[in-house]
Amino acid sequence: MGLDLTVVPPFAGLILQGALWTIAITASAGVLSFFGGIGFAICALYAPAIIRYPIKAFAWLFMTTPLLLQLFLIYFGLVQIGIDIPAFFAGMIGLGLHFAVYNSDIIQTGILAIDKGQHEAGRTLGLSRGQTLRKIVIPQAVRDVVPPIGNNMIALLKDSALVSVIGVVELVHASQLAISETFRPFEFYLAAAACYYVVNLLLEFTLHRIERRIALTR
């Protein structure tokens, strides 16, 4: 049986709904990974050893195992020890933490690249160490690392496809539902791929705008 793209339109509603869920989980995991990344970065750089080392070990665990395995562990594994998280939130937490670790690495380099004089000036003006970080160092560091963080957000969008395996009805899962009715994998996966491509372009465009804005206000 060849290709017949006319089987797709009747399921357009389902696919679009899937696309919305993909955007929802990408956005929520993206926010989590951004603020989580800042949190991890601060802990990894400034927290006392008792917090710093566990955070570093945790980051190492997340960087050396596949995301798919982490999602399985959070969704199927934690049930065993009595923690039952709904699929969407398990996906959000898994994706969010995974990318928070990668973002943290980038933000740490950003923080270290900020001139030491900025820390000293903040302290001299009477700000506490926490205030100096929050109001002076972090805003500048984050601004510098927007492009690589943006790349991570694009990777996050694509990796959000993995949450289909723990039962979130996003783009991939939605197309699988359509396939189970029509037995037309090629057309529907192609449609899903096209949706990802479009969402990806929109995200890239938005990130580009943000980068330009930041560059202008400098």
Binding site: M1, A161, V172, R184, P185, F186, A193, Y196, N200
Partner: peptide
């Protein structure tokens, strides 16, 4: 552009499940 713009999982699915169709 196409490969980097779509998830790897979808590419594998198109190849493995969609491939037999063509």
């Amino acid at each position: 552009s196409v490969i980097r713009g779509t998830p790897c999982l979808i590419q594998l699915f198109i190849l493995y499940f969609g491939g037999p169709q063509i």
